[in-house]
Design a protein around this nucleic acid. Structure first.
Lengths: 340, 340
DNA sequence: CTGAAAGCGCTTACAG
DNA sequence: CTGAAAGCGCTTACAG
């Protein structure tokens, strides 16, 4: 392979001068810089990443820990990954991806061996078992998802409480008095998927305060079970006039379910989901929704992480916990309930 | 950070002996091995990846080039990525992921800087502009997707010709005489998505040989345009009794379209798709389909790549071009046409 | 403005 | 069975 030594000898300078000419960290005469640049072009020189990492203790690689769990909806996860990956690229970083089930060992491998300058954790649980490892690691970490303990890491998440309130208040104002909230499956909660109950509790509170009946249910995250569950729910509660969906699989199944039942939104039933606009387009979902902003969250996490990596944020400066405010994207699926 | 020098001094051996004790590349006395292992545990030693890469010229990292193009269906792409990532993990490799639009520059960056031991290219086009770069790279490459020129790389793909024949023959045998084949959008073909016309040409041939009318059409890959197109097609060709779908977005949209039209498969219309079983479950698709086996293709590509990387296949041994035989997964959406 | 040298943390011939 | 040393390809004080 062609090394900086080759460049140096072609350019008739020392290796250090060649290095400085390329990095710009020391002034170099124009003449010398030109010769070095010409040599680089001639030889097609690219620095060896391993050697550079060894010398600088920087890899310009970010570790991305994703997990595709059986009870979660894979296409939704992809959005977050792309937000992270694209932003990293823009900032000059590459992504080392781990999708294996055992996130702990992947994380340890990446951090202990110094393969990465920082870590992004996706799909963070309330008591995420990867977190203690990340805190002990020498690299900084950024999370998408809110754990119980945010010490030592930067945290980014949708404001799910506000999302729950927003959904309920929107339909209450239109005159709805009985709603169903379809959440993720109960295992997601048991595993520590805090966003499920954060949204649910806030929705329940908002409903209680304003005298609205809210029926929260856990629904499966796979087809066709989730479709059956939606049908059963609508059968069991004929007086319900509004549906809140915090479950991507349920949202994806809903058009078919409503068609089968001959139900039209918003004439017969008002619907609000919680998913990204990209998701809505992919699945052709015609429902108004709380934008979950996966690309924006991924972008924020990487931006802050890179600021830490590059020392623009001091190691002792406090970490951030930042919530994205939910916004209601109106797709016309809510209206005054039919009885009114 | 803790280095092999620390391990060596705790274990009271030289650094080389510590290294050999861990790698097993030289016989080491049991006593010494125990002391080294104890020191490793005590200090929590993990080799520095950059240093090891520099010394061995091996990174144990595989570069994965994916691309999420506007006119392709992202959830389908994800399946391939997971097949690659999971297999790499099993074989002890990590994945460096590039999702940026400019695959050429990502590829060059990874290979020139020796960040990776090998490359997997996804979504390969007929005249893929990443291919010349990959051929010139010192690392081996494996493709998922069939280019015009397979020289210098290992190639894995579904046998799309056979898939096209299978779809047509299956419906012909049931008595169908007029079919529509819904392909990907025409830009995919123009960009060099050879699988589109490989399947289509074979289907057209098979139909012609057996006197079946086959109407091939390009359909959008976004919602809701694809749904509208499907409706228009069914309106325009009322005598069609079978639908062949080589377009994931169209497959995902079809249940809603058929519901709207009051059409039931297979009573009114027979349907065969081409997508993975995982995809069918995610989108709750009730149609028989040709399994596109993304996980299997990703797995095969990584396996062969690792064999090359690790020298189990000599550099002069010929490269492979391997096709996965399509299998029809019967979900009961085909039957004798209504007229018969 | 430039060069010679040390050092990053490994592995692996070379020597005994 | 083990150790001292060279070398992988960079970067960066140190010296001039």
């Amino acid at each position: 392979m062609v090394t900086i030594g080759d460049v140096a000898s072609i350019a008739k300078v020392s290796r250090s001068t060649a290095s400085y000419a390329l990095s710009g960290k020391r002034t170099v005469s124009d003449e010398v810089r030109r010769r070095v640049e010409a040599a680089v072009r001639e030889l097609g020189y690219t620095p060896n990443a391993g050697a550079r990492a060894l010398a600088t203790a920087q890899t310009r690689v970010i570790g991305l820990l994703a997990q595709f769990l059986e009870d979660e909806f894979a296409p939704a996860m992809l959005q977050y990954m792309l937000g992270v990956s694209n932003t990293a690229c823009e900032l000059g970083y590459d992504i080392l991806l781990a999708t294996e089930e055992d996130g702990r060992s992947a994380l340890r491998r990446m951090t202990d061996s110094r393969m990465v300058d920082g870590i992004v954790l996706l799909n963070v649980a309330e008591h995420d078992d990867r977190l203690p490892i990340l805190r002990d690691a020498p690299q900084p970490g950024a999370l998408v998802g809110l754990p119980a303990n945010c010490a030592g890491v930067d945290v980014f998440d949708l404001d799910f409480e506000e999302a729950g309130r927003l959904m309920v208040d929107h339909l209450r104002r239109l005159g709805h008095r009985e709603l169903i909230l379809v959440s993720q499956p109960e295992h997601v909660v048991e595993r520590g998927g805090a966003y499920v109950w954060r949204l649910q509790n806030a929705a329940v509170d908002a409903a209680r305060r304003s005298g609205v009946v809210l029926r929260p249910v856990f629904a499966p995250s796979r087809q066709p079970e989730v479709g059956r569950e939606l049908n059963a729910l609508l059968d069991a509660h004929p007086s319900v006039t509004g549906l809140l969906i915090n479950n991507e699989a349920a949202a994806a199944a809903l058009p078919t379910v409503l068609h089968e039942r001959g139900v039209t939104a918003p004439t017969d039933l008002s619907v609000i989901g919680r998913y990204s606009d990209e998701f809505a387009r992919t699945f052709s979902l015609p429902y108004s929704s709380i934008e979950s902003a996966p690309d924006r969250l991924g972008r924020m996490a990487v931006r802050e992480l890179v600021r830490r990596i590059e020392g623009q944020v001091g190691p002792d400066e406090p970490h951030v916990v930042r919530f994205v405010s939910p916004e209601l994207v109106d797709r016309g699926s809510t209206a005054t309930p039919p009885e009114v």
